[in-house]
Simulated scan of single mutants.
Amino acid sequence: MLNSHYAILGLHPSASPLEIRRAYRDLSKRFHPDTTQLAPDLATAKFQRLNEAYGILSHPEKRALYDLKIGYSRYNVIQAPVDPRQTDAQDSKSAYLDATDRPLSAGEIFALALLSLTLLGCLGLAFLMAWLRGEPLLS
């Protein structure tokens, strides 16, 4: 497990998505080729490995497949409950790692409202046209 993606980030396989993100942010600042004191070739190689590890561990499906590949089972691990008082204000506003795991934005709610109004308008127009033609509305 010394060359695993978890080892690259310095984490245990039971790490939460927030811990993975924090470790990636800290290490990316340290190993970015433009900001590090390391040789450019070494810094680029480390930064690429870091990006590859984060790319796999930040997506739940890819992470589950990777865990199977390295033989780690998440079902036998009991994680300590998270203390709600330890939330970091900077991380709490961007803790959604997966686009499907977030609340709807105001623009999305507005688009859904417009879509609903359009549907109701089309149904109303269809009933109006049927009524004007003298056809039965419900058969």
Rank of each mutant, 00 (worst) to 15 (best):
residue 131 W to S: 13
residue 42 L to H: 07
residue 55 G to E: 06
residue 129 M to H: 00
residue 6 Y to C: 03
residue 48 Q to I: 14
residue 130 A to I: 13
residue 10 G to H: 05
residue 93 K to W: 06
residue 63 R to H: 10
residue 15 A to K: 08
residue 29 K to A: 14
residue 17 P to D: 11
residue 62 K to W: 04
residue 122 C to P: 00
residue 69 K to D: 11
residue 115 L to T: 13
residue 44 T to K: 12
residue 78 I to Q: 10
residue 86 Q to H: 04
residue 23 A to P: 01
residue 67 D to C: 08
residue 19 E to Y: 07
residue 133 R to D: 14
residue 16 S to W: 02
residue 71 G to R: 00
residue 9 L to K: 12
residue 57 L to M: 09
residue 29 K to H: 05
residue 47 F to D: 10
residue 129 M to R: 07
residue 50 L to V: 07
residue 36 T to L: 02
residue 100 T to Y: 07
residue 48 Q to V: 15
residue 114 L to Y: 02
residue 106 A to L: 15
residue 11 L to Q: 09
residue 132 L to F: 06
residue 23 A to H: 03
residue 73 S to T: 01
residue 33 P to H: 06
residue 11 L to Y: 07
residue 7 A to W: 00
residue 84 P to L: 13
residue 63 R to N: 09
residue 89 A to T: 13
residue 61 E to Y: 09
residue 135 E to C: 10
residue 85 R to L: 07
residue 114 L to S: 14
residue 32 H to T: 09
residue 12 H to G: 11
residue 46 K to S: 05
residue 59 H to W: 01
residue 133 R to K: 14
residue 66 Y to F: 11
residue 115 L to I: 07
residue 132 L to Q: 13
residue 90 Q to N: 09
residue 80 A to S: 12
residue 94 S to W: 02
residue 8 I to M: 08
residue 44 T to I: 08
residue 128 L to M: 10
residue 37 Q to A: 12
residue 25 R to V: 14
residue 74 R to I: 11
residue 42 L to T: 15
residue 100 T to H: 09
residue 98 D to L: 15
residue 59 H to I: 10
residue 76 N to H: 04
residue 17 P to Y: 10
residue 135 E to K: 10
residue 73 S to A: 02
residue 12 H to R: 14
residue 9 L to I: 12
residue 18 L to V: 15
residue 15 A to H: 08
residue 36 T to Q: 02
residue 78 I to C: 08
residue 26 D to Y: 06
residue 69 K to A: 14
residue 128 L to E: 08
residue 77 V to C: 08
residue 65 L to Q: 10
residue 60 P to H: 06
residue 46 K to I: 06
residue 32 H to L: 03
residue 118 T to C: 13
residue 17 P to M: 11
residue 5 H to G: 05
residue 117 L to K: 09
residue 39 A to Q: 10
residue 45 A to I: 06
residue 84 P to A: 09
residue 2 L to I: 13
residue 76 N to I: 06
residue 43 A to V: 11
residue 39 A to M: 04
residue 50 L to Y: 05
residue 24 Y to C: 08
